[in-house]
């Protein structure tokens, strides 16, 4: 566990803890909402991985006017999304498929965009996002902007052709981006050993001519430090880099997955490395925070999630006919003629 505060002040150290708590409280709230029947689709927990997303995103330049760094998160990196300004209420709206959400019910969970705040939602085939972020950061280099990009993906996505093609392109073009490998040791039920022969994903870096380093993904300060160093190199013109987050997915792929393919002893072992518990103990031990301050942060995280979720619950689902809008910016998509008051195929 990191002893240094890496130059972070008390407020920032507290902000890190807040982001960890919000991530966990949001997911716990989601589980509750799911039991109540409010969630459309799966709930994908990042239990045990919160520090990876939070520490990494904290090391970037977060702005709201479209001039900051660019993030592509994943479903297990919601903490990064929140740090980049993704609103809790939008998170719940998305999970509940509400018409008031940023994608108006077209897309699920964390799959949404805000280019001003600097995040691009993923599509489900995550390897694709390496290609997309390569192009976004290529535009930064072509325009001489001092911005960089960060793309999260699971260990499973590292096996895709898109991952290879995107990374190879980025490396050749010196695209200023950081690949964040979420090595939680499982791709759904497939262990990492069946996805790759390497023992660490950092071994793949040299094959593309890029620098890579591995970090304990349960230690939020260690992640912050590693990513800040990577970000400095990337921003100063080195081009693409990779950071591997090593941790363990302590829940199933989603709530439908009983995770019975995992040795329970292994899960118990990783419970002792809970990123929130570890960082909380460190904050107290180093006297970077008082017990009362931490309790206040925890309560605030819990309350914000409860309030946002309750507000989202009351909001409407999209109207069915909205399904035809925005397929194109300028070409309209017809409604089914069979839904008209006087069905007539010549009006199709």
């Amino acid at each position: 566990m990191s002893d240094s505060a890496f130059g972070l002040g008390r407020t920032e150290l507290h902000d890190l803890y807040r982001a960890l708590c919000v991530t966990r409280a949001a997911e716990e709230r989601l589980e509750l909402l799911q039991k109540q029947g409010h969630v459309t689709g799966g709930v994908y927990r990042c239990l045990g991985q919160e520090a990876g997303a939070v520490g990494a995103a904290f090391a970037l330049r977060r702005r709201t006017d479209g001039t900051g760094d660019m993030l592509c998160h994943t479903i297990r990196a919601a903490g990064a999304l929140f740090l980049f300004g993704g609103e809790l209420i939008d998170y719940f709206r998305q999970y509940m498929a509400k018409g008031t959400g940023p994608t108006r019910g077209r897309e699920a969970n964390v799959h949404w965009f805000d280019f001003d705040k600097g995040f691009v939602g993923p599509v489900s085939p995550l390897g694709t996002m390496i290609e997309i972020m390569a192009g976004m950061t290529l535009s930064f280099r072509l325009r001489g902007e001092e911005r960089i990009g960060m793309v999260f993906y699971g260990d499973g996505a590292s096996s895709t052709g898109a991952w290879h093609e995107g990374l190879n392109f980025a490396a050749v073009q010196r695209c200023p981006m950081i690949l964040m490998v979420e090595n939680n040791q499982w791709a759904f039920s497939t262990p990492t050993s069946k996805n790759t022969r390497v023992s660490s994903f950092t071994e793949k870096g040299p094959g593309y001519g890029i620098g890579a380093e591995s970090v304990d993904g349960t230690d939020v300060l260690a992640v912050f430090d590693a990513v800040r160093r990577a970000a400095n190199l990337v921003r100063s013109g080195e081009g693409t880099r990779m950071v591997e987050l090593k941790y363990f997915r302590r829940r199933g792929h989603a709530q439908h997955d009983p995770q019975d393919y995992v040795d329970p002893a292994e899960i118990r072992k990783w419970e002792k490395k809970d990123p929130l518990d570890l960082y909380r103990a460190r904050l107290l031990e180093k006297e970077w925070a008082s017990e009362a301050e931490l309790v206040a942060i925890e309560q605030d995280a819990f309350d914000s999630c409860r309030v946002a979720a309750e507000e989202a619950i009351g909001e409407p689902y999209p109207d069915g006919p909205d399904a035809v809008t925005d397929v194109y910016t300028d070409v309209s998509t017809p409604h089914p003629w069979t839904r008209a008051d006087s069905p007539d195929p010549t009006l199709a």
């Binding site: 280019f115 290609e131 997309i132 290529l138 072509l142 898109a162 392109f169 050749v172």
Partner: peptide
């Protein structure tokens, strides 16, 4: 910077073009 020779990987550079389009370029 405006005429970019790419690796032989149509998926990679088409995806990169999409990312650049998000950022206001017209690839």
């Amino acid at each position: 910077n405006r005429v970019i020779d790419t690796p032989i990987a149509e998926g990679g550079f088409t995806g990169a073009a999409a990312g650049a389009a998000h950022m206001g370029l017209r690839p």
